[in-house]
């Protein structure tokens, strides 16, 4: 394995946690661009504003995969507000750092998580509206 990566990055790359998708996910966040070599998708199951389950899929280099894996561990069980506070730097710190060149391009996991939470909040707003309409129908 490459010398530039910390042991934690290597470990998460070799054995990524929470890989996959969630059936009936409450929210999905997808960031990145295949042209740049990184695409991350995070899916959430949310109950009472708490992240009950979280899964990811990532196309990208070892640091992209490791940061995705790490953020699923960091976010699981947190409230949405707490999860929104996790930054890119927090993820890199938890992994004992990333090579400088990877800090920008392959450290999108926090963005993916935030995007998923925003997706959930959008849906909540629409859902409330929908509920109103349904009531109207009845």
């Amino acid at each position: 394995m490459d010398i530039d990566y910390s042991e934690k990055v290597k470990e998460h790359f070799r054995n990524p946690r929470n890989v996959g998708t969630i059936k009936d996910a409450d929210a999905v966040g997808r960031v990145g661009n295949p042209v740049c070599g990184d695409v991350m998708e995070i899916q959430l199951k949310i109950e009472d504003n708490i992240i009950k389950d979280i899964k990811f899929q990532t196309f990208g280099c070892a640091s992209a995969i490791a940061t995705s894996s790490m953020i699923t561990e960091m976010a699981k069980g947190k409230t949405l507000d707490e999860a929104l506070e996790i930054t890119r730097n927090d993820v890199a710190d938890e992994l004992d750092g990333l090579p400088p060149i990877k800090m920008h391009c392959s450290n999108l996991a926090a963005d993916a998580l935030h995007s998923a939470i925003e997706d959930y909040m959008e849906k909540q707003k629409k859902g409330e509206l929908k509920l109103g309409e349904n009531e109207y129908d009845v």
């Binding site: 790359f13 070599g37 990184d38 196309f59 070892a62």
Partner: peptide, 24 residues
């Protein structure tokens, strides 16, 4: 669907040394 650096590092874990033209 996959990225070259990840391929190289995974192969390296299996004892195989190769290279890629991936930007990463």
């Amino acid at each position: 669907f996959i990225e070259g650096e990840s391929i190289i590092l995974s192969l390296n874990d299996l004892g195989i040394e190769a290279s890629t033209g991936s930007a990463c």
